[in-house]
Computed example of a mutant assay.
Amino acid sequence: MPGLLRGVARTAVVAGTATAVSNRVSRRQAGRWAQQDYAQQQQYDQQQYDQQQAYAQPQAPDPAVPPPPAADEMTEKIDQLKQLADLKAQGVLTEEEFAEQKRRLLG
């Protein structure tokens, strides 16, 4: 009977040790998977945040050259320049006044 008791005790110790090791390995793997999931979730969240920020920021308009004025506007400006030149030629406007009016007109 002592041999039988010793065999049962040894089996219990081995089974208990195996269970403890198995549980520890399972917990360690679960912890690693949780860390990986957390890291992936953080990366995904950061990508989503970056995309939202990119869409939320107003796009600055391109500093493009303004479109050329329409033909009617050009004709009107040419007529006004001719009138200014005539006033300057008549002595009504000084050179500085003519230059200022021309600058305002051409903008």
Rank of each mutant, 00 (worst) to 15 (best):
M1S: 12
P2E: 15
G3Y: 04
G3L: 06
G3M: 10
L4T: 05
L4S: 12
R6L: 01
G7C: 05
T11S: 13
T11V: 09
T11A: 15
V14L: 12
V14E: 12
A15S: 01
A15K: 03
G16N: 00
G16Y: 02
T17Q: 10
A18E: 07
T19W: 04
T19Y: 11
S22N: 11
V25L: 15
S26T: 12
R27C: 06
R28V: 14
R28T: 13
Q29P: 00
Q29M: 08
A30T: 05
R32N: 00
W33G: 08
W33K: 09
Y38W: 10
A39T: 07
A39E: 07
Q41R: 13
Q42H: 13
Q42N: 15
Q42C: 14
Q43C: 04
Q43N: 08
D45S: 15
D45T: 12
D45N: 14
Q47A: 15
Q48E: 11
Y49E: 11
Y49I: 06
Y49H: 12
D50P: 15
D50Q: 14
Q53G: 03
Q53L: 08
P58W: 07
P58R: 14
P58N: 09
Q59H: 04
Q59W: 03
P61R: 07
P61T: 08
P61Q: 09
P61A: 09
D62E: 12
A64W: 11
V65M: 07
V65H: 08
P66W: 01
P68K: 10
A70F: 11
D72F: 11
E73K: 13
M74A: 09
T75S: 15
E76H: 07
E76I: 04
E76V: 02
K77L: 06
I78L: 08
D79I: 12
Q80E: 11
L81M: 03
K82I: 03
K82F: 00
K82Y: 06
L84I: 03
L87S: 02
L87K: 01
K88T: 00
A89R: 01
G91C: 10
V92R: 09
T94D: 09
E96G: 06
E97R: 02
A99Y: 08
A99W: 04
E100N: 15
E100D: 13
K102W: 03
R103E: 05
L105R: 04
L106S: 00
G107Y: 00
